[in-house]
Design a protein around this nucleic acid. Structure first.
Lengths: 222, 222
DNA sequence: GGTATAAATGACTGACGAGTCAGTAACTTA
DNA sequence: TAAGTTACTGACTCGTCAGTCATTTATACC
């Protein structure tokens, strides 16, 4: 009666290699929707296509799943994003960086991570530091370098590179958050992502433009 | 035996007028620390100096307390912040606005509200809209007006006022968030609030500076 | 003082969800 | 194909907490 004849699908499969990733993906979604305290492990299990017990075969508890999820996702996105640096003038390099960073910030996972980080992470100081270091400091350091080069070559005005990098970071971060929830943040509702990042690039490059004081333009711009 | 002789302190007082405010203040703290799902009403009650049952004399349930708390606090802070507009050149006005807005963003309540809004509020679309409208749109509209004036008078370059306002908002918001958690966001750790807002003002005014193309400096700057 | 009533209490209930574990089904090996 | 192994299941326990309500306490008024 219950003999599975050839071709009968098993009720479930053993997939020990794939479970952690499946669970982490599901966790991103559910934690993202309900936060740490509000999320139900049963929901995460269901979305991963397993039962609740299975979670405990791979993670000791809810909190550990949460931590691992954040780490995993941050690393994943960062690595994808840092492929995009080549050379050229500081302006070109900066422009390219901004586009790449924008892609990162607008990835589906990022908005969720951002919310979770700011919502829950004073209870996870180590994770908060990890995020701050890997996402923010890293970006700031990169941009800082580009700007230092640009200032030396005369492309940019003389400005503290760290401060300038922070300005860029702040603009892009907020805009990315807004754009990820256009239905709430109506001031970006009528702008596409492309227009948005173009505006940012324009604005930022203008802010870095040299002062052009004194004698008329030495360098000509096209 | 239990007769309270003269001078005996009563175990508690009737304070029907003050309870709502006390509860909302306590709620801000506890929700701020644990989020909506993670906060315990008993903790809120304790922090307000009452028992759990008392909450239900003033709010129908946890969610209502949460909503009311957000509304209350946002309105409170906004109103305090909008006293600070006077007249003068667009530059002066803008500078003053930035200082005022900074004070608002750095108020103790704001950081908490910001976290809660971004952490939990996709479940409260109406509250999210309320926040967006009252905090962000309102600020953007105000700044937009100032910038329009400044562009017309030649103080600022020709730029879409809404875009420019958004840039300002994004910079100030992120910096305020960072500054409110300096121990995590190490890139602002060594800067005081004053230095931080000064940098922002400098940077932003530079970004709005007219292009100074063509004939040499008409206006001299000190 | 005594009485009325509004304000506040805190023990209780009922629901829910994290974490457990005995049992079962998928796969492996001989 | 039978015995052995391990991935997985889901009913259960046990703690926690939102919300209730019978009781107690403060206060106003006579």
């Amino acid at each position: 009666m219950s003999l599975p004849s050839t071709g009968q699908e098993p009720r479930w499969r053993r997939l020990p290699e794939e479970r952690p990733r499946q669970l982490i993906d599901a966790a991103l979604e559910v934690f993202g929707e309900h936060g740490l305290a509000g999320a139900r492990l049963e929901d995460i299990a269901k979305r991963a296509g397993v039962s609740k017990g299975t979670i405990y075969l791979y993670f000791p508890n809810k909190e550990a799943l949460f931590r691992e999820m954040v780490r995993q996702k941050v690393i994943e996105e960062i690595e994808a994003a840092e492929q995009r640096l080549t050379d050229g003038t500081a302006t070109e390099q900066l422009r390219r960086f901004m586009l790449g960073y924008w892609t990162f910030l607008r990835s589906p996972a990022f908005a969720t991570i951002y919310r979770l980080v700011h919502g829950e992470l004073h209870h996870f100081p180590d994770l908060a530091k990890f995020y701050s270091r890997e996402v923010i400091e890293r970006g700031i350091k990169l941009v800082g370098e580009i700007i230092r080069r640009g200032a030396r070559s005369g492309e940019f005005r003389d400005i503290d590179p760290t401060v300038a990098a922070r300005m860029l970071g702040s603009i892009m971060l907020s805009h990315a958050v807004w754009c990820s929830r256009r239905s709430f943040f109506l001031h970006v509702a009528e702008e596409t992502d492309e227009q948005c990042v173009d505006n940012i690039i324009d604005f930022y490059l203008h802010a870095l433009r040299p002062d052009q004081t004194g004698a008329g333009a030495g360098t000509s711009r096209t």
